[in-house]
Simulated scan of single mutants.
Amino acid sequence: MVNRNKLFLLALILAAFNLRPGLTSVSPVLHGITKDLGMSSTLASLLTSIPLVCFGFCSLFAGRLANRYQSEKMITLAITCIGIATFLRAFTNSSIYLLITALLIGAGIGVVSPLLSGFIKSHFPDKAASMISIYSTSMVVGASISIGLTTPLQHWFNHSWKNGLAFWSILALLAIPLWLVVIKQSRIPASNFSQKTKGSLPLKNKKAWLLTSFVGIVTLLFYCFAAWLPAIVEEKGWTPAFGGLAGTIAMIAQLPATLLLPSLLKVLPSRRFWITTFTLSIIISLSLLCFTNVTPIVSSICLGVGAGGLVSLSLLLPLDMASSPMEASTWSAMTQAIGYMIGAVGPFIIGFLHDYLGSFVPTLYLLIIIGFIAILLGWKITKSAKGKAEGLSVK
């Protein structure tokens, strides 16, 4: 059993590694992409927005797929889709081709992400917070290395951003063989995953809609910066290389929040307190970028800490409210499906406003307002979930 648990934990980590590089590896080489393919800022923003929309749409069907087929099989198939689409970027010859690969990557992520929540609920029911921490941290590591290494890889591969993007298919190549073993080792057949919910989404549940709105706001904030932080820093007068460094630091700064979240919840279990604290960290980051000339590194750190904590909490809250692995998958599917569709609007709006206004400053004002809305939603969620979520023990 111990070896089996270690196998499943490693599989979870490798799967999570694949959930961000297809999106985050684009921003460090975005200048080269727009130059070579003749893309405007608005069109380039679709490289982040389209995967998020597709992510959200495909999440709607994740629970039903898990109910009809073995959940682990669907995770393996979706990781394969991510890997193939990422590899195909090596042959990019037009903006439409690149957007199609983004769509396929988003589809794969949309299936994997909610099913991993059910996987955790099923195989690690007594260690949900710790497993979510490992899951979130693994995603952050995948995002960080893709942002930090894509530019060096571009130079290594004869200054080809296409090969730099395609390189990240290696993460799927590492994960797939292990998940094929997990399929054989799993003792939970699809037909027994849940007989009550049958993969239906909690569309009539008020708490689910509140949580979905919160996830949408958190996602919007996160991906606006994942897509545009290097460009924002560059507009403030810093070099493109420094902009890429700021983006990398923002990703790495998420690690303390994701790693320490279980310990923080043991000391102070209140989800409300941590939602407020992490969101204020993002608002401080936005304010520093908007109103001061302080080095963007400080803003990147505040942004990373806030984003890391909020993303981890948004993954944990559906598990707090779920009573079974399938319910965890369907709650996660709904919050991520609709929430990520909301989040997909963010990068597009930032790109459009920048094209229209010629500056990122007005968009920073807008994001500060959205940050305060996130706090209000967080307080409403924790009030609704107080009796169940905030009272849970964290193991």
Rank of each mutant, 00 (worst) to 15 (best):
F8I: 05
L9E: 02
L9W: 01
L12D: 00
L12W: 00
A15D: 02
A16G: 07
P21R: 09
L23N: 04
T24Y: 06
V29F: 10
T34N: 11
K35R: 13
L37P: 07
S41F: 11
S41P: 11
L43N: 10
A44H: 03
I50S: 05
L52S: 03
C54T: 14
G56C: 10
F57R: 01
C58M: 15
L65T: 01
L77R: 07
L77P: 03
I82S: 01
I84N: 06
I84H: 03
L88A: 12
R89G: 06
A90W: 11
A90E: 10
F91A: 12
F91M: 08
N93Q: 11
S94N: 07
I96L: 12
Y97A: 03
Y97V: 02
L98M: 15
L104P: 10
I105W: 02
A107T: 12
A107H: 01
V112R: 00
L115Q: 00
L116R: 00
K121P: 01
H123D: 03
P125C: 09
P125S: 13
I134Q: 02
Y135I: 10
S138E: 10
M139T: 13
I145D: 03
G148D: 07
G148K: 08
S160V: 11
K162T: 11
G164N: 11
A166D: 06
S169F: 03
S169A: 14
I170S: 14
A175E: 08
P177T: 08
I183Y: 07
K184L: 14
I188K: 14
K198N: 15
G199R: 11
L203F: 00
A208S: 14
A208Q: 01
S213D: 02
V215Y: 14
G216S: 04
I217F: 06
E234K: 15
E234M: 12
P240I: 01
F242T: 09
G244S: 13
I249S: 02
A250Y: 15
M251H: 04
I252V: 15
I252P: 05
P256H: 08
T258F: 08
L261V: 06
S263N: 11
L268N: 14
P269V: 00
S270D: 05
F273C: 09
T276E: 05
T276L: 09
L280I: 15
S281F: 15
S287G: 13
L288V: 14
T295L: 00
I301T: 07
G304N: 12
S312I: 01
L319M: 15
S324N: 11
M326N: 13
M326P: 06
S329N: 14
M334N: 02
A337T: 02
I342Q: 04
F348C: 03
I349P: 03
I350D: 00
D355H: 02
Y356E: 08
G358W: 07
S359N: 09
I370F: 01
F372T: 12
L377D: 05
I381W: 06
A389K: 03
A389E: 04
G391I: 04
L392Q: 13
S393L: 07
